[in-house]
């Protein structure tokens, strides 16, 4: 993540400090990990309240997106509730439905926000076992086992299930769009 942002010419600051988070121009909330233990960590550090209150553009990535939702089936965790939609575990329908959903898949986007300039399906890189269903805040969708949310947007909150920092030139366009908001 830091490498990807540095390549785009910005100097990211890695922090869990409230003042620094509030002062930041943009906040990125990445994450690889498990939902319930990460939520415990956020609560223990008061970050659950801080993240919800942020007024600048915020981008949640992967677990970051899932934690912005209301509840996750991973560890039966209550999450931040920025998006009032649950996070569910993939239920394979046939043997070829391997979980985790790992690799490059295409997304169809709204064409605005962090997807400004996107007019056709593009490949991005996913690694996850839990998903957000399609809902009113879905900004990009993809399909694996079933159609689901690849990206969410509401007010100043943006989120992606996939990893833009690992998605080659397409991912760089998405990160650049976020930095330009």
């Amino acid at each position: 993540m830091i490498g990807a942002l540095t390549r785009l010419g910005v100097t990211p600051l890695l922090t869990d400090n409230e003042e620094e988070l509030r002062r930041a121009d943009k906040v990125i909330f990445p994450g690889v990990g498990e939902a319930s233990t990460t939520m415990e960590y956020l609560r223990a550090h008061g970050l659950d309240r801080i993240i919800k209150d942020l007024k600048q553009p915020v981008l949640g990535i992967c677990l970051g997106q899932q934690l912005m939702c209301s509840h996750s089936e991973e560890g039966d965790a209550d999450c931040l509730g920025i998006f009032d939609v649950p996070v569910l575990k993939f239920q394979p329908q046939k043997h070829q439905d391997k979980v985790p959903h790992m690799g490059w898949n295409t997304i169809e986007t709204t064409g605005d926000g962090i997807f400004k300039g996107f007019s056709k399906p593009e490949f991005v890189y996913f690694v996850h076992s839990f998903y957000v269903p399609v809902c009113q805040w879905t900004a990009a969708r993809t399909e694996y086992i079933l159609p689901f949310t690849a990206s969410l947007h509401k007010d100043n909150f943006y989120a992606t299930q996939f990893h833009p920092e690992k998605s080659g030139p397409t991912g760089e366009r998405i990160l650049k769009n976020f930095l330009d908001i």
């Binding site: 490498g3 990807a4 390549r7 890189y125 690694v127 690992k166 991912g171």
Partner: peptide, 8 residues
């Protein structure tokens, strides 16, 4: 590698 390459 991590600083320079944008795929997994």
């Amino acid at each position: 590698i991590a600083a320079n390459i944008s795929i997994p």
